[in-house]
Amino acid sequence: MPESDTLNSERLSTDIEQELLEKLRSLPSEKVLQVLDFIEFLWLRNRDAALVHAASRSSEASFGRIWDNPLDAEYDQL
């Protein structure tokens, strides 16, 4: 990524962060708790997806030894 893109991305991130903070500060406390709950939901979903992806990658070599054989090649044709 070119340096100018990185700087623009950082500036955009800072602008978004500032806007989020301003809006968050204007909410009543019960709404802030709902926002926090939603953020935690998104964070967990993202973390879970990353764990599934990592588990899939780590098992590829093991399954590759099982699946890469002449007998299994017949199923690849289906």
Results as ranks from 00 to 15, higher is better:
residue 1 M to D: 05
residue 55 A to D: 09
residue 15 D to Y: 01
residue 73 A to T: 05
residue 55 A to P: 04
residue 69 N to A: 04
residue 61 A to S: 14
residue 58 S to Q: 10
residue 4 S to E: 07
residue 5 D to F: 00
residue 74 E to L: 11
residue 54 A to S: 11
residue 77 Q to G: 00
residue 66 I to D: 08
residue 24 L to H: 11
residue 19 E to Q: 15
residue 14 T to M: 14
residue 57 R to D: 07
residue 78 L to G: 06
residue 21 L to M: 13
residue 1 M to V: 01
residue 56 S to G: 08
residue 39 I to M: 10
residue 67 W to P: 01
residue 61 A to C: 06
residue 51 L to R: 12
residue 78 L to H: 09
residue 35 V to L: 05
residue 8 N to E: 08
residue 58 S to C: 00
residue 38 F to H: 12
residue 50 A to K: 01
residue 65 R to L: 14
residue 44 L to D: 04
residue 28 P to Q: 05
residue 19 E to G: 11
residue 74 E to N: 09
residue 52 V to E: 03
residue 59 S to W: 01
residue 66 I to T: 12
residue 67 W to V: 14
residue 72 D to Y: 15
residue 65 R to H: 13
residue 11 R to Q: 15
residue 56 S to H: 05
residue 37 D to I: 01
residue 71 L to K: 11
residue 3 E to I: 08
residue 24 L to W: 08
residue 59 S to T: 07
residue 57 R to H: 06
residue 51 L to S: 12
residue 68 D to V: 10
residue 16 I to E: 05
residue 58 S to W: 07
residue 12 L to F: 02
residue 19 E to D: 15
residue 78 L to V: 13
residue 31 K to P: 07
residue 12 L to P: 04
residue 31 K to D: 04
residue 34 Q to G: 10
residue 10 E to V: 07
residue 53 H to K: 14
residue 10 E to K: 11
residue 16 I to P: 01
residue 15 D to F: 10
residue 40 E to A: 10
residue 64 G to C: 01
residue 70 P to F: 06
residue 34 Q to F: 05
residue 71 L to V: 10
residue 67 W to F: 15
residue 63 F to N: 06
residue 5 D to C: 08
residue 76 D to L: 15
residue 32 V to E: 09
residue 42 L to S: 09
residue 44 L to E: 06
residue 78 L to A: 06
residue 27 L to H: 00
residue 45 R to V: 05
residue 57 R to V: 03
residue 52 V to N: 00
residue 21 L to W: 12
residue 30 E to G: 02
residue 37 D to N: 08
residue 9 S to A: 09
residue 9 S to H: 06
residue 61 A to H: 12
residue 75 Y to F: 14
residue 57 R to G: 00
residue 14 T to A: 15
residue 60 E to S: 09
residue 60 E to A: 13
residue 10 E to Y: 09
residue 16 I to W: 08
residue 15 D to I: 03
residue 28 P to L: 00
residue 62 S to F: 13
residue 69 N to S: 00
residue 64 G to V: 02
residue 60 E to L: 13
residue 42 L to T: 01
residue 75 Y to E: 08
residue 19 E to A: 15
residue 8 N to H: 04
residue 36 L to Q: 12
residue 14 T to G: 09
residue 25 R to E: 14
residue 21 L to G: 10
residue 55 A to G: 02
residue 24 L to V: 11
residue 21 L to D: 13
residue 64 G to W: 01
residue 38 F to E: 11
residue 38 F to K: 12
residue 21 L to P: 04
residue 51 L to D: 10
residue 23 K to P: 02
residue 45 R to T: 10
residue 47 R to N: 06
residue 35 V to K: 03
residue 77 Q to V: 08
residue 63 F to G: 00
residue 71 L to D: 09
residue 77 Q to C: 07
residue 72 D to R: 15
residue 74 E to F: 09
